[in-house]
Every structure is written in structure tokens, then in C-alpha cells.
Design a protein around this nucleic acid. Structure first.
Length: 474
RNA sequence: GCCCUCAUCGUCUAUCGGUUAGGACAGGAGAUUCUCAAUCUUCAAAGCGGGGUUCGAUUCCCCGUGGGGGCGCCA
């Protein structure tokens, strides 16, 4: 166990989003890399906007991403620790004591019912153009921050600031610093949006007579379209959304690692253990990164392709179950799939695994497997039926399949392939002449898994019935 | 307006003074395949501008420009 102690300190005032997740991830990676401690602290001092639902969402999202915390609120196997409580709403006493300390040291005073932190230096008044009011400033040398990512940063803090609101509630800057002191946090890894606050925090540390911890300000994630940083309202910003869409958490984590960090070479898809081994603060980029959902989707696909078949089937089933509970057009199709024989469902999913880019494509991609009432794509039909004599080809396929040994032919893709290729050579035609129309009759479309696999999985009864029906209608 | 910060293909990025500036996603073309994907090959695509320092700057420094963040009794 190293002495490194880092924390992720979200506030439960909204959905858990990509930016927060990456901040959590980088803290977690650093803790795991150094063998240190990863602390989860809940900054729920904003009584107006807090909610238990959002709190639970934080726990669930972190857990889904695999970012387990060593200290913090209890949730599953996570949490515990000797530096609690880990929710700021339960730490009122601690803050009060620390405010007293500041007052006794002459570093805090009351004004307008609130308590202010007192900067030490020569005072003067000046009109602030931006805020349209006269403010009292303090002459002070710049605060120097030796940031682990950005290097030396200087900023002058020249105004006293509120640390306890007039309603008695302590302010973020105060509680943040007090918690980091009392929880022995050694490295503060947070978004660059806090860089300007850091001068306040350093003064606060000084007020408590404590050496500030190391700071590491990571760049922000920008929204993929339009100006500004990514916020909870942006398309694709919510972690929960990816979970719901059947994304693999390891893919999302891998993608997030690469947004602002890289191993120093060309590798992108990497096991988390390797990332932990290589991750370090100086390796984090300094410039903001734009979120790219296409690249995320690609990363997800590569993970999906490598997923063991049974795991893929389990994920698929989970997704269909969620669809069945949802509203809209999804439930009926999903229920049909879930109502099917488990072995059949499994075969269909295994057949589809190498073909889809994401779990979320599965319902649409496999729909015709689970209903006899599937639509026929008119455009595809017109195209397929236009050349040659597809009906004759289809009759040949049906006849050959009917008279074939079911236990042998329908059990093997290669047997089906040989059967169809045999027909093709026998009639001096190509495999495609048989494939296209058979696919149309069986699925109503020209997109799908291999025709041989499709025939094998659908099975003799369905295949023959579908072809018969198709021929009758055509 | 003030303060902080950043700057390589459309996007994510490699390069720690000397490279034909590399990779990935997205895009184009081709190959392969039973469709569609995947895969493989391939094409196009970048050092923001101006000054310095240096034998030599994408790389170091300065100025500008542009992006981002902050300037709450929000966190």
C-alpha cells in the first residue's frame, strides 16, 4: 500500500456524465497504478438540487464501469474506511470546527450574515466592470501551483470569499479543502474547470496551516458538435445511456482512457491491467479533447467481437429483457425473442455476434428469426426477382432441403453450402443465384448472417414453411 | 472586460531540435465473401499567423489569433 490517496467527489445533482466518469477513471487509475487508495466522497451540500436517485446513479455507474472505491459510502463491496463520514451532508460538525479554527486564527470573519475567508494583505477598493459593483481587493503575490499535468501555474487571488453561507451551509471551497485535509488526500486530480479555484484552495490550506496536496488538472471533454465543454444535456453525454444501449463497460472505459491519455505508442485497444501499469499523471495531455461517438462505437464493436459467445448471449438476453420492459415499438419484438426456445435464442445471437456493431442492433437485426410475420423489403424483392428465374431456384432449394437427411444437413453449415453449390453447378449457375432469393424468402431482406447459418438455425420446419409461403405469394 | 489555460489530418493522437510528420476513427477506391458487415490493400487528409533562438524548428521563447475554463452566499 503506497501513501497515495486520491478521491472522486461528485455531487448528486444530475445524471452521471462522461466528463465525471473520466475524472473518476483517472483518479481510479492513479490509485491502482500507485497501489494507493481511491476514495469516493459525495459532495451533497447543495440541498436544493440533491437527490437520492442521482446518488444511487453515481454508485451504479461507477460499479458498472468497474471503478471500485476503497473508501466511501457503502455500496455492495465498496466503501467503508476510517475517514468518514463520506457524505458532506453528514460532516457538518467537522466543518463547524474548522471554521472555528479559522476564526480563532483571525482568518475568517462574519459579514452580511455569512462567514468570509480573510486574505492577508493591503486592502483597496476598485469598481469591477464585469460585476458592475465596487469590490474590496487585497494586494497579494500570485499563488504558485505546481501542477502535475500542466506544470507551473500562477494566479492571483485578491478578494475575500464566502466560506459559510448566511443560511449556515458551508460552501464548496471550504468543505472541499477541509475534506481533503481530514481525509489525508495526497493528490487532487480534477477537471481543468477547477484550475481557477485552486488559488482559493491554496489560501485555505494556508489558513489551516497545512501544506497543500499535489494538484493535477486534467483537460476537459468538449461536446462533439458546437462550442463548449460537454454537459449533461449533450447528446451521448450520459453513462447510463451507454449502459442501456448495451455498450460494454470495458470498451467505454478503454475509450475514455484514450481521451486525454495514451500509452506513448500506437496502441489503443488495451486490457485495463496494462493501462493501470502504464498510466501516470505526466502522461496526461494538456489540451481538451472532443468526444467522438463513432470512435467509441468502433471500440465497442472490437470488444464485442472478442467477447466469448456465452457472454455475448447473456448480454443480448439482458438487452432484450430491458427492451421488453420499455415503451414504444420495442416490447413486442423483444418479447417474441424472449418467448423463443432458449437454445434457439442462443443460436440466433451467436450467428449474429460477428455481424453487428452493437448489442442495440440485435432486435432489428434478428427480428425475422422470432416471427413468421416479418416484412418483405419491396425494393430488395424487386431487385432479386428481376433477374433469372428466382422462383425456379427457390423451388429447387426447397426440394433439395425437403429430401435431404434432416439430422445431417440441418446440423451443418458446410452440408447446406454443399447442397446449394451442388444445385448451382448442376444448373450451370452461381451460388448467388440461389443465395439471394432464399435469403429473401427466409428473412425478407438482403442484410443478415450467412445464408447457410441462417438455414441451419431456422431449422427445417421454418425454412420449408417460409419458402412455401413465399412462393405462394410471389 | 479581467484572470487562467490550451494549440499536429474533420476527430482522438505519436514525435521529448534533424522523420518521406506515424497510427486510429470517420471518408474515398479496390480486393475478398452467399447478402450485409467484418477483414485486407490503398487514396486523400495536419504542424494557426508573425517574429525571434539555433547550422537546423511541429518541437524552445515572445507577440498575435483562435479554442476552452473561471470571475456565485453552485459544485
Amino acid at each position: 500500500m503506497s501513501h497515495v490517496r486520491v478521491r472522486f467527489a461528485p455531487s448528486p445533482t444530475g445524471f452521471f456524465h462522461i466528463g465525471s466518469a473520466r475524472t473518476a477513471l483517472f483518479n481510479w487509475l492513479y490509485a491502482r497504478h500507485t497501489g494507493g487508495t481511491f476514495i469516493l466522497r459525495i459532495e451533497d451540500t447543495d440541498k436544493e438540487r440533491n437527490s437520492e436517485a442521482f446518488l444511487t446513479l453515481i454508485y451504479e455507474s461507477l460499479t458498472w464501469l468497474g471503478l471500485n472505491w476503497d473508501e466511501g459510502p457503502k455500496f455492495g463491496d465498496n466503501g467503508g474506511g476510517d475517514f468518514g463520514p463520506y457524505r458532506q451532508s453528514e460532516r457538518g460538525q467537522i466543518y463547524q470546527q474548522h471554521v472555528e479554527k479559522l476564526r480563532n486564527a483571525g482568518r475568517a470573519y462574519e459579514k452580511d450574515g455569512a462567514i468570509w475567508f480573510k486574505l492577508l494583505g493591503e486592502r483597496y477598493e476598485i469598481f469591477d466592470e464585469h460585476r458592475k459593483k465596487t469590490v474590496e481587493k487585497v494586494k497579494l503575490p500570485p499563488v504558485v501551483i505546481d501542477d502535475k499535468i500542466r506544470g507551473r501555474v500562477e494566479r492571483i487571488e485578491d478578494e475575500d470569499f464566502v466560506i459559510v453561507r448566511s443560511d449556515g451551509n458551508p460552501v464548496f471551497h471550504l468543505v472541499n479543502v477541509v475534506d481533503d485535509i481530514t481525509m489525508n488526500v495526497t493528490h487532487i486530480i480534477r477537471g481543468e474547470d477547477h484550475l481557477s479555484n485552486t488559488s482559493k484552495h491554496v489560501h485555505l490550506y494556508d489558513g489551516f496551516g497545512v501544506q497543500p496536496p499535489a494538484f493535477a488538472h486534467i483537460p476537459l471533454i468538449l461536446k462533439q458538435n458546437g462550442p463548449g465543454k460537454m454537459s449533461k444535456r449533450d447528446q451521448g453525454a450520459l453513462i447510463e445511456e451507454y449502459q442501456l444501449r448495451g455498450y460494454l463497460p470495458e470498451a467505454l472505459v478503454n475509450f475514455l482512457c484514450l481521451l486525454g491519455w495514451n500509452p506513448g505508442d500506437d496502441r489503443e485497444k488495451m486490457p485495463i491491467a496494462e493501462i493501470i501499469r502504464l498510466f501516470d499523471l505526466p502522461g496526461v495531455n494538456q489540451s481538451n479533447a472532443r468526444f467522438d461517438d463513432k470512435k467509441l462505437a468502433h471500440m465497442n464493436m472490437t470488444y464485442l467481437l472478442e467477447l466469448p459467445g456465452e457472454a455475448f448471449v447473456a448480454r443480448a438476453r439482458e438487452y432484450f429483457q430491458r427492451q421488453a420492459r420499455s415503451t414504444g415499438s420495442g416490447p413486442a419484438a423483444a418479447e417474441a425473442a424472449l418467448a423463443a426456445d432458449a437454445g434457439y435464442f442462443r443460436d440466433v445471437m451467436l450467428l449474429s455476434q460477428p455481424k453487428v456493431k452493437g448489442i442495440e442492433e440485435l432486435p432489428a437485426y434478428t427480428g425475422y428469426f422470432f416471427t413468421e410475420d416479418f416484412p418483405i423489403d419491396a425494393k430488395v424483392r424487386d431487385k432479386v426477382m428481376a433477374k433469372g428465374d428466382p422462383k425456379a431456384r427457390l423451388r429447387e432449394v426447397a426440394e433439395a432441403l425437403r429430401s435431404a437427411e434432416p439430422g445431417v444437413v440441418f446440423a451443418s453449415d458446410t452440408a447446406i453450402e454443399e447442397l446449394m453449390k451442388g444445385l448451382a453447378t448442376q444448373h450451370g449457375l452461381g451460388f448467388g443465384d440461389y443465395q439471394a432469393v432464399t435469403r429473401l424468402a427466409l428473412s425478407g431482406t438482403n442484410v443478415g448472417p450467412s445464408i447457410t447459418g441462417m438455414i441451419r438455425v431456422l431449422g427445417r420446419e421454418r425454412v420449408l414453411a417460409r419458402i412455401e409461403r413465399f412462393l405462394a405469394a410471389a
